[in-house]
Simulated assay, not measured.
Amino acid sequence: MPQTIADINAKIVAQTAKVLTATELKALVAEVGVKQAAKQVDVITTGTFEPMESSGAILNLGHTDPPIKIRSCWIDGVPAYAGFGAVDLYLGATQEADLSDDVALNRGGGHAIADLIAGKEVSLRAIGHPNDCYPKASFETTITKDSINQFYLFNPRNLYQNFIVGVNGGENTLYTYLGPLQPRLANAVYSNPGAISPLWNDPDLQLIGIGTKIFMGGGIGYIAWEGTQHFPLQKRLENRTPIGPAATLALIGDAKQMTAEWVRGCYFRNYGASLMLGVGVPLPVIDAEVVARAAVMDDHLVAPVIDFSIPRRVRPTFGSVSYAQLKSGKITIEGTTVKTAPLASIYLSEKVATTLKDWIIAGKFTLTEPVALLPSDRTFVPQDTRGF
């Protein structure tokens, strides 16, 4: 029988809801079929733990005495954007630390964000624009997440529905956002954890949208908007899953609730800083079609193999491979056996889904109705030679 999110929430509050992770759901479907599985499940939990570089934090410092209108600011040596209100800042996860500051190398905004979430003190240096309202010229201090007002993540692009597999057909090691790619097809790196990941299990985004409540960094977050580079018109297989990068989400969440386990700064050699983030999305089982879509397995999901040795926006491909092949530890490219490795943590992605499942079973996490669905008609517009 179909049910509503309100029906499911009533079960969650009564602690009678039946909740399975996406991995558990797929196993159940393989055993009893879609219709029987749909009768046994109210919520499916998904998860990922991977680098999400288009992320950052909004901070409000509170006013000094006398007040300051911040013009330039550094948090743990990392420049923060100060083009908002007087003491509002945005700290980007990939912003690099200034070498002029006495800070450790190979650090960026993601590390400063993670340190604040972990409860650590971080340094802050600000230069003001003195005026009649805000006469203070500069100040230095240390801050913690408890010594500032608002501290929340606002991430313009997270949760790629699918991504690419990176290889290097050239003669020299390449240092990329996927990590080092060894020459002559010596390794292949993929970033998506596969069938446990949220957007594979709702391929046309029929269940989630603006206002959907999620697990974010160990706390509560929400889907705020479509993500940048949102491309739902990507070509798709018969099962409606995309063959390459497709939908993305913009996320928002209270960083003061988040925990160090699920938010970690990271650095890619010769590329830059980023942020590892755990995100889990619950899917309400309102009918059997939800289960049918979420039953998709790794061998029915594909990603394109891209050669990074060609320094162009559109790089050559070696065709597509399934996530089952990627997770086996090796793929074959033009007769060559290539070792594979995930950039995402498969183990922690599963743990995100399990943690969210436990929250729901305990009645601590209810579901929300989207206030609007995400657009399904966005094209992807490149910047080519206009104006160059």
Rank of each mutant, 00 (worst) to 15 (best):
G85M: 08
A14N: 07
I113K: 10
L124Y: 00
V290D: 01
D76M: 00
G170L: 06
N168Q: 08
H111C: 05
D98I: 05
N60Q: 15
V305C: 07
Q150I: 07
P67T: 06
N131R: 05
T141W: 02
S322D: 08
N162R: 11
V165K: 06
D287T: 08
L348F: 10
L237F: 03
V305Q: 05
D132M: 05
I208P: 01
I196E: 01
L205G: 13
I360A: 08
V103R: 07
C73A: 10
R312V: 08
I164T: 14
G85I: 04
S197A: 13
Q3P: 05
F49L: 07
F84G: 15
D115S: 13
G253S: 08
Y160I: 07
V13C: 10
T16F: 00
H63W: 05
I346R: 09
P370W: 01
R240K: 13
T354D: 13
V371N: 11
A37W: 01
R264D: 10
L91E: 11
L374F: 04
K330D: 15
Q229Y: 15
K18M: 03
I346N: 15
V78L: 01
L59D: 13
F231L: 09
C73Y: 02
S349I: 01
Q234V: 09
H300A: 08
A126G: 06
I127H: 12
L28R: 00
S72I: 02
T64Q: 13
A255I: 02
I70E: 07
A362Q: 14
V352L: 06
M52K: 14
I220E: 14
D254W: 02
P284Y: 03
G319K: 03
F365D: 11
L89Y: 10
I310V: 15
E53I: 11
E171R: 13
A114W: 00
F380V: 15
V165H: 09
G166E: 02
I223R: 04
A246Y: 10
Q229E: 14
P316R: 15
G179A: 09
F215M: 12
V314M: 12
A260W: 03
N106H: 11
V302A: 08
V122M: 05
P304T: 09
P79K: 03
T173R: 06
F318N: 15
Y177Q: 11
L61R: 06
H230C: 08
G335L: 09
I333W: 04
A27E: 00
L283T: 02
L178D: 10
K357C: 05
D7W: 00
E50M: 15
I164S: 14
A295Q: 01
Y347W: 13
W74N: 09
P135R: 10
P180H: 06
I12D: 08
A188K: 02
R71G: 12
T259C: 11
E171V: 12
K26T: 00
N270I: 04
R125L: 06
P311M: 06
K351N: 11
R269S: 14
D102A: 11
D204S: 13
T366A: 14
K26N: 04
Q206I: 03
G179E: 12
I210A: 11
V291I: 00
L326K: 14
L326M: 11
G119A: 09
S72E: 09
V305D: 10
Y90A: 15
